[in-house]
Computed example of a mutant assay.
Amino acid sequence: MLVSVYAVVHGWFNFLWFSNVALLGGLLAAWLESRRIASMMLVAVVLLELGWVLDFLLSMAVWGWAPLGVVHYMFNPEIPLFVRLLSLYHLPLPFVLIWMVWRLGYDPRAWRYMVGLGWVILLLTFALADADNNVNWVLGPGGQVQEWMHPVAWLAVVMAVCSGVWWLTHLLSAWLLPQRSIARCGRAW
């Protein structure tokens, strides 16, 4: 239901948000029992999604003011309530990905694959983005178009920051989550 509603309300371009990629990639990982895909989706979004969860919970505690500013759209009455309620998938997503990787084991190569996939997604969103569709903030922070540096320089900054977050998530995941052998886990991919 989420895919069809989002496609109608937001358009297909919306599915290039890393959170939507992780939602659909996590579904694929669960279906295939793929520790690599599950690990890639964890690396891609778990820290950012935990920030979303924190921002949402804090905004609920202080009646709509989002300290991090990433959930302001959840309080926008111009977006239908049903669509905003569908966005609550962000709440369980990081915990489901952590549980899935805990169960399947962490694939330490996942961050390399995620950097490649993530850069392709960022380049694609940069090529297709406009001021109204600033997916993954490739045109500027907070969904706004920035004007203080060349757009390609900004894209390089976004790619570097994302790569740093993915590297940090990889280090934490490799340290905290089990790394199962292929024989114990089943499929490696």
Rank of each mutant, 00 (worst) to 15 (best):
A44Y: 12
F56Y: 15
V43R: 08
A44K: 04
W167N: 03
V70E: 00
V83G: 00
H170A: 12
D55N: 01
V62R: 15
L122V: 11
Y6H: 13
A153L: 15
R180A: 06
A129V: 02
P141E: 11
A44L: 15
S34G: 08
M1F: 08
L23M: 11
L155K: 12
L16E: 00
N14Q: 13
P67N: 07
W148Y: 13
A174P: 03
L177P: 12
L176P: 03
Y6F: 15
G164R: 09
L58N: 02
A127Q: 09
I121G: 04
M114Q: 15
F18S: 13
F56C: 02
N134P: 06
L128V: 07
A129S: 15
W189E: 14
Y106C: 08
A156P: 03
L86V: 01
F126D: 10
D130G: 13
A153E: 08
R187E: 05
L68I: 12
F15V: 03
R103C: 02
W52V: 07
L57M: 11
A183W: 04
N76Y: 02
R35G: 10
L58T: 01
S39K: 07
S163T: 15
L2R: 08
F56D: 00
P108I: 00
T125Y: 08
M159G: 08
W166S: 05
G164A: 07
L32E: 07
F82K: 00
R187N: 12
S34W: 07
I121M: 11
V161P: 04
A183I: 06
L47P: 07
L172G: 07
A30G: 14
V115Y: 03
G164V: 09
L97W: 01
W102S: 10
V101W: 03
V152F: 13
S4G: 05
S181D: 14
L23Y: 11
S34T: 04
H72W: 02
V46N: 10
L97Q: 05
E78L: 13
L23D: 03
V135H: 05
G143F: 08
L155M: 10
A110V: 05
V165Y: 08
M114C: 09
A38V: 05
L47R: 01
A131M: 06
A174Q: 12
V161N: 06
L93M: 11
H150A: 14
V115M: 14
V101I: 06
W99T: 01
Q146P: 05
R84L: 02
L68A: 10
A29K: 07
V70F: 06
L32I: 00
F56R: 04
W102E: 01
Q144E: 15
S4Y: 11
H170I: 00
D132N: 14
V120T: 15
S173F: 00
D55C: 00
P67W: 03
I121V: 15
R187P: 07
L47D: 02
L32R: 15
R112F: 09
G143N: 11
V96W: 11
E33T: 06
W175C: 06
N76Q: 07
F95G: 05
P141D: 10
W119S: 06
M41G: 07
F95D: 05
H10M: 11
W65R: 14
R180D: 04
G142R: 08
Q146H: 10
V3F: 14
A30V: 00
G51T: 04
A29L: 07
L176T: 10
R109Q: 13
E147W: 05
